[in-house]
Nucleic acid binder design. Structure first.
Length: 203
DNA sequence: GGTAGGATGGGCT
DNA sequence: GCCCATCCTACCC
């Protein structure tokens, strides 16, 4: 698995939906651990009542209104942390929740952090699981993901991908909007990555 | 295969 | 005080 360049800020300075779709198939890297992004959700500005930014600017939502290409990490249910990547030009709200990864580097460390000896496909197949597996915490809230140690990279040799679109998971407001994006499989046949990508079990 | 319930703490009304 | 952008275990088909 070869990683390409770090995604530049211009990648994130687009509409939240474009960024959510564009992140599929890219590689999230933190230290010695990395995984291919296979599931994302877009949380928009404006009429999207499920978004944390819907209630306006606050100490918590400040990052979402800030410049693109930064991490928004928050605590959910008092126990887990969720990673978002901020989209849209500076000053406009919008972020992408990373919901699932296929581990490609540092699998043993991920296993140790998760405290389980289960299949590799279950190490990072959920928003609370992947932050635990990659060692991402609220200490990363606001960090610039166009500079290390937490970055997203291109994947060398990645072909066309197929994307499935569904409503978002686990929300009650604005629940019917088609803003969840899942990487179904590689369209190009024959790469060893096909097996890896199809092995993820989405929660 | 499926679902019900509990853990656990911060943000907001 | 209530509501969560969740996960795991136990238990029941």
């Amino acid at each position: 698995m070869l990683f390409g360049r770090i995604l530049p800020r211009s990648f994130y300075a687009r509409s939240t939906v474009e960024v959510a779709r564009g992140l599929l198939g890219k590689v999230l890297v933190h230290g010695s651990t990395a995984g291919i992004i296979v599931e994302t959700e877009a949380y928009l500005g404006g009429d999207d009542l499920a978004a944390h930014s819907a209630r306006g600017l606050s100490a918590r939502t400040r990052v979402i209104f800030g410049p693109p290409g930064h991490a928004y990490v928050y605590l959910i249910y008092g126990m887990y942390e969720c990673l978002n990547l901020v989209a849209e030009p500076d000053g406009r709200p919008g972020c992408v929740l990373i919901r699932a990864l296929v581990p490609v580097r540092g699998v043993e460390l991920m296993r140790a952090r998760r405290g389980i000896s289960r299949g590799v496909e279950q190490l990072a197949n959920g928003p609370g699981k992947l932050t635990l597996a990659l060692g991402i915490t609220r200490a990363h809230n606001g960090v610039d993901v166009t500079r290390g140690p937490l970055v997203v990279r291109e994947r060398v040799g990645a072909g066309d991908i197929k994307i499935e679109v569904t409503p978002r998971i686990g929300i009650t407001r604005s629940a019917d909007l088609p803003l969840r994006f899942v990487l179904v499989r590689e369209a190009s046949v024959g790469g060893t990555d096909d097996r890896v990508l199809s092995s993820v079990e989405l929660p």
